Simulated assay, not measured.
Amino acid sequence: MEIRTARLTLRSARPDDLEGMHAILSDPRATLWWSTPPHETLEQTAAWLDGMIANGPDQPDFVVELEGRVVGKAGFWRLPDLGYILHPDVWGRGLAAEAVKAAIDHVFATREIETLTADVDPENAASIRLLERLGFVRTGFAARTWNVGGVWKDSIYYALSRADRGATQGEQAPA
C-alpha cells in the first residue's frame, strides 16, 4: 500500500526501514511524548518494526518518506487509534499534518468507520494544535494513563467523526 502527497510517500513498513526508524525511535526529542522511552538498541526497534510489518499491508499504518528517506510513521497502529512520530530534523515544516491528513483521508475513503481517536500528552502542544487543526475535538482527560520509563503521563482524548471531517473539509455532512 502506498499513498503519495505533495511531498511525502506513505507506505507499508519493510525490514529495510530498520535504520531509518531506529534513528527516530532512539531520539529522545522524537520520543518525548511517545508511549515508550527512546530505543536503546537496534533490536528494540527491530521488534517494534516486526510488529508493524506483522500487522500487514491492510492495516493503515504507514512509514513516512521524504525524498526517499524514512522520516517517521503515521497512521493507525490499531483502528481507530491514530499515532504518528517524525524525526526532529523535519519538524516545523508541516509534514506531520500532511502525513496524518493523508492517513485519515485514506481510512475514511476505504473503511466503514465513523470515528477516529487520538490520545495525546497534555504537554504536547504541537500535537494538540495539529489534531485540532485537522478537526479532532477533545472528548476527555485522564491522569496517570501511561508509565513511560518510570514517569507517569496523563492523556487528553480526542475524536474525529466522519461527519466532523466532512465539515472541516468544506463538504456537506450527511444528514
Rank of each mutant, 00 (worst) to 15 (best):
T115N: 14
Q59N: 15
R11A: 04
G75S: 08
Q59W: 02
G72N: 10
S26C: 04
L130G: 03
R11S: 05
E67Y: 05
T139L: 03
G51N: 10
R7S: 11
R11C: 03
V64G: 12
D119V: 14
L79G: 08
R29W: 00
A6H: 03
P15I: 06
S26H: 01
T110Q: 12
D121R: 13
T115R: 15
S127F: 06
T110K: 13
K73I: 00
T45C: 04
M52F: 14
F141P: 14
D50Y: 02
R69H: 10
A173C: 05
L32N: 00
A175Y: 04
P37V: 12
A125E: 14
R165D: 12
I113L: 15
A23W: 02
G94T: 04
A163P: 10
T45K: 03
A173F: 14
Y84D: 10
A167I: 15
W33Q: 01
L79E: 09
A103K: 01
S12E: 08
D58R: 13
L10H: 06
E132G: 08
G72H: 10
A125V: 14
R69K: 11
I113G: 14
P88Y: 09
E114M: 11
A143Q: 15
D16M: 00
M21N: 09
Q59P: 00
A167P: 09
G83R: 03
E98Y: 07
P15F: 11
V120M: 06
M1I: 06
P38R: 06
G20F: 06
T145I: 13
P80A: 05
F136E: 09
P122D: 11
S155E: 03
N147H: 09
R7G: 11
D61A: 05
I53H: 08
P80Y: 05
V64T: 13
R111L: 05
L116W: 13
P37S: 12
I113Y: 12
W48F: 13
G75V: 02
E112V: 04
V120G: 10
D119R: 12
G149L: 12
L10D: 10
W91P: 02
R14Q: 06
S155V: 00
E98T: 05
P15Q: 10
D89H: 12
T145E: 14
G166W: 12
W152Y: 15
P28S: 05
V71G: 06
S155L: 00
G149I: 12
D61C: 05
D105C: 02
